[in-house]
Design a protein around this nucleic acid. Structure first.
Length: 334
DNA sequence: TATCGATTTCCTGTTT
DNA sequence: GAAACAGGAAATCGAT
């Protein structure tokens, strides 16, 4: 008995597999991405046929599409797995069963790298990882989207992020004083530019920190476009299980102290991220950039500790309930 | 074109 | 001696 059986019963698996079809839906306004949409004909397992019932079930089966991945519960994940494996990948029910280990809340799913997907369910994991929604944004979340910065969009989708941001820019009307609560997104996946869970900055102290650290550019009447600051880059690596704790780790999360492990590699990644063309970024230059942040209150040095820094009071978006991903590693045997 | 902020680049000297 | 740290100074780059 698979954990998917109940859902398959719900949708009458036989018909689900044989009658499922694809159509194109253009709900993703503001992007060029077309997302295949399920069109499933259902039959009531008790033999009762009721159109409204079918409609409700179709809607229920599609609920995962209406939420960002980080809001999925396990049932949403199951539906996404079934839909992706059967419809997108044209694989069998047996393959669904092999993906059982991926049934987890979306927020945890987002923390997994491609390799984690492969480790948990074999070769199909690689293909599933590619299908994990990273670009689609439901219309109902547009207000939330308007709160995100350009960098948030680029983090989410390095290729199309800027285009999405521009398409929403006219709607967002960024004014510093109009944004009392800023939302940060932090990275998680294989790419150092991708995105993880959402951290809300809601208390007065954090807002004042944002004043100090983030909005200098905006306050001067600039567009609100914000190039990634080096301390944000490090913060994002700490939120990304691909790089934390292997490249960088929290030495003392309660004191916001972190340690660089692969400092040269991190410097190189920073240069790549900033598209430095002249010369490859090295740790000497990278660390100079870090030292400029001492005055800004976003970074501090730690006495007599090499490759060790502390986030200052002006650094925001550091919150995590799983520093160094220790809980996730134990839970998913990573 | 001027200005601005955040680096980048290069450097010298110091510490581990 | 190597690597990292500290910080001054000038150059660069993207943005308004």
């Amino acid at each position: 008995m698979s954990i998917f059986d109940h859902l398959f019963f719900d949708v009458n698996c036989t018909d689900f597999k044989s009658e499922v079809s694809l159509n194109k839906d253009n709900e993703t306004q503001g992007s060029d991405i077309e997302i295949p949409h399920l069109d499933i004909k259902l039959e009531d397992p008790n033999g009762e046929s009721d159109d409204s019932n079918k409609e409700n079930r179709n809607e229920d089966l599609e609920n995962w599409r209406k939420k960002p991945v980080n809001q999925w519960d396990e049932k949403d994940t199951k539906k996404w797995l079934i839909s992706t494996i059967i419809v997108e990948l044209r694989e069998s029910y047996d393959v669904c069963c092999r993906s059982e280990k991926l049934v987890m809340p979306g927020q945890e799913l987002l923390r997994l790298s491609k390799n984690n997907f492969i480790n948990l369910c074999g070769t199909i994991g690689s293909r599933l990882f590619e299908f994990l929604p990273k670009q689609s944004a439901p219309k109902t979340r547009r207000n939330e989207l308007r709160q995100l910065s350009l960098q948030d969009f680029i983090n989410r989708d390095p290729i199309n992020g800027e285009k999405f941001y521009e398409s929403l820019r006219e709607e967002r009307n960024v004014k510093h004083n109009d944004i009392p609560f800023q939302r940060y997104r932090v990275p998680y996946s294989d790419d150092e530019t991708s995105v993880d869970s959402t951290v809300s900055i809601s208390d007065a102290e954090s807002v004042s920190n944002i004043d100090l650290a983030r909005t200098k550019v905006e306050r001067k009447g600039r567009s609100g476009r914000h190039t990634l600051w080096v301390w944000e880059f490090l913060r994002d690596l700490l939120h990304n299980p691909k790089y934390c704790p292997e490249y960088i780790y929290w030495k003392d999360y309660s004191k916001k102290i972190f340690c660089l492990v692969k400092n040269k590699e991190i410097a190189r990644m920073w240069g790549k991220r900033k598209k430095i063309k002249k010369k490859e970024m090295d740790y000497d230059k990278f660390s100079r950039a870090l030292r400029y942040h001492y005055k800004k209150g976003t970074l501090e040095s730690v006495d007599k500790e090499r490759l060790t820094y502390r986030f200052g009071p002006a650094a925001t978006g550091l919150e995590t309930d799983d520093p160094n991903f220790e809980k996730a590693r134990v839970k998913y045997q990573l």
